[in-house]
């Protein structure tokens, strides 16, 4: 879907981005992770031509973005900024409707789409005619997301979308974000410097340092197969939590007790992270989880202890770091 080919950007002598290449598959959520100043934002902005590269190419759907008019290109790419960048002189409804206006949708269609999004993002209708400065940070961020999603662009770029929020609000919005059906279909490139967030939301993570890619891969690959000491070091903190987040139930499938399916009792799929599985004990009263492998027709059942045991068995099998 998105192909980055030896992309570079220099600001004078500073090489902000240094000949990086990667691809993002359709429907994938790729996280650009790295320390401050490593070139994440610059990379992201080159994808919708907010910044013109000094070298290399970007293809979206096989088409070089430099061959398109920047305005048309951008109308097909959702963009969410760290501090939302809502128009202070537009109401919430007008803010969300900016791109449809540019695309000349008719009024009815815009209205329908805006209220649909509000509902999905858990925003009350009463906020429609309110100005952004009357909203909380979390609400503003939701509106920012709605604005990016409104025209249903296939590609979404997000620059630290949850960076400005407090921890509680952030995890709440992150959870909503994960659950949002609209996002499942989208190809997303998201910037963050929060490792936990990257592990929670990313299908793959692209870890950058000084304008170069250090390692790109799934969270588990980065965690259990780090390319070098930098990667290992970067993921050092709260490692256990990261491991919980990196592992899918599928990964520890063979260590889980098998079970014949009971009708209607499946509450988890195998592609869910280990972290979510443990968390689900918090929210449901069940002692046992009934899990279905998300590809094969196999079933497992586990209580909290059995899950943890399976995790440690899996860990023992990994090559020693």
């Amino acid at each position: 879907m998105i192909k980055i080919d030896h992309l570079s950007k220099s600001f004078g002598k500073i090489k902000a981005v240094d000949a990086i290449s990667f691809e993002v598959a359709e429907g994938e959520n790729l996280i650009l992770l790295g320390t401050s100043g490593c070139g994440k934002t610059t990379t992201l902005k080159m994808i919708n031509r907010l910044i013109d590269p000094t070298g290399g190419k970007v293809f979206i759907n096989g088409e070089n973005i430099m061959d398109q008019s920047p305005e048309l290109l951008r109308r097909g790419i959702g963009y969410v900024l760290q501090n939302n960048g809502l128009f202070p002189h537009y109401t919430v409804a007008e803010n969300i409707a900016i791109v449809p206006q540019l695309l000349n949708w008719d009024k009815k269609q815009i209205e329908r789409r805006v209220s649909e999004l509000l509902e999905k993002l858990h925003l009350d209708k009463k906020y429609l005619s309110v100005y952004p400065n009357e909203l909380s940070g979390g609400q503003q961020q939701r509106v920012g997301l709605a604005r990016a999603l409104v025209a249903d662009p296939p590609v979404l770029l997000m620059d630290e979308p949850f960076g400005a929020l407090d921890n509680v609000t952030r995890s709440k919005i992150q959870a909503e974000f994960k659950a949002l059906d609209e996002l499942k279909r989208k190809t997303i490139v998201m910037v963050t410097h929060d490792v936990q967030e990257a592990f929670e939301l990313g299908d793959r993570i692209c870890l950058m340092d000084k304008g170069k890619i250090v390692q790109i891969g799934t969270p588990a690959e980065l965690l259990f197969n780090p390319a070098n000491a930098f990667v290992k070091d970067f993921l050092k903190e709260q490692r256990l939590q990261l491991e919980f987040k990196a592992l899918r139930l599928n990964d520890i499938w063979k260590y889980l007790p098998s079970q014949t399916p009971k009708q209607g009792s499946i509450n988890l799929h195998g592609d869910v992270s280990f972290w979510s599985a443990i968390e689900s004990f918090k929210f449901t009263s069940t002692e046992h989880l009934h899990i279905k492998h998300h590809k094969k027709d196999e079933y497992r059942s586990a209580g909290f202890e059995e899950l943890m045991a399976a995790f440690y068995q899996y860990k023992k099998q990994q090559p020693h770091e």
């Binding site: 907010l50 109308r75 900024l81 960048g85």
Partner: peptide
């Protein structure tokens, strides 16, 4: 606000 201007550009205005 620079971020407002950037948002405007990014939305294809």
């Amino acid at each position: 606000d620079a971020s407002v201007k950037e948002a405007a550009v990014a939305m294809g205005m």
